[in-house]
Simulated assay, not measured.
Amino acid sequence: MEIVKNTVVSLQYKMYDSEGELLDQTEADEPMVYLHGGYDGIFPVVEEALHGKKTGDSVDVTMEPDDAFGEYDAELVRIEPRDVFPEEIEVGMMFEADDPESGDVMLFTITEIEDGKVVVDGNHPLAGKRIRFAATIDEVRPASAEELEHGHVHGEHGHHH
């Protein structure tokens, strides 16, 4: 079966930075599974490359920052007073906070704790980086009516209600 709109795609992938360092990969027994056809389950550029492929086919896509995790935005780095944080914090911890400008909930990472101040960064850790996404398709199947109604995959390796 070909990958077309409203099919469920199961694949194994490896993701690399521009220096060829492995950033992420699927485990053999835990493939990535997504609903194909513009449901935001995978990077749009990768979805486009997968369209029309079949089980066993491979794709290798290099994405610029705008196609992957976005450009690095220095305005998303903030310095906050230490006393607005819980007692037990350390560099690398992540937390959600409301963005006062947009009202959206954002994910921030603590990058520095020093002199009564905490530096937090709202950029994705891979923002500003060129990413290579190499994948092999394990399986393609028609999506169920329920999956189409909900806009995501159900069952093994998918969403559970």
Rank of each mutant, 00 (worst) to 15 (best):
E2A: 04
I3C: 07
V4R: 15
V4D: 05
K5V: 04
N6P: 01
T7G: 04
V8D: 11
S10R: 15
K14W: 12
E19L: 11
E19V: 01
G20R: 12
Q25G: 02
T26V: 03
T26P: 02
A28K: 15
E30V: 03
V33F: 04
V33L: 05
V33N: 04
Y34V: 02
Y34D: 07
Y34N: 05
G37E: 08
G37W: 07
G38F: 04
D40G: 04
I42T: 03
F43N: 01
V46M: 01
E47M: 04
A49T: 07
L50P: 03
L50R: 08
G52E: 12
K53T: 09
T55G: 02
G56T: 04
D57L: 06
D60E: 14
D60A: 13
V61A: 08
T62M: 13
D67V: 00
A68L: 09
F69T: 05
F69W: 14
G70H: 07
Y72T: 02
A74C: 01
E75P: 00
E75Y: 02
E75V: 00
L76C: 01
V77S: 09
R78M: 12
R78Q: 15
I79F: 13
I79W: 13
I79G: 02
P81V: 06
P81E: 12
D83R: 11
D83N: 15
F85N: 11
I89E: 07
V91F: 06
M93A: 00
M93L: 10
M94D: 09
F95R: 10
F95A: 00
A97P: 03
P100M: 03
E101S: 11
V105L: 13
M106W: 15
F108L: 12
T111K: 14
I113W: 07
D115L: 05
D115K: 12
G116Y: 11
G116H: 12
K117F: 11
V118P: 01
V118K: 07
V119E: 11
D121H: 09
N123F: 06
H124E: 09
G128A: 02
G128H: 10
K129C: 04
K129G: 02
K129P: 00
R130N: 06
I131E: 06
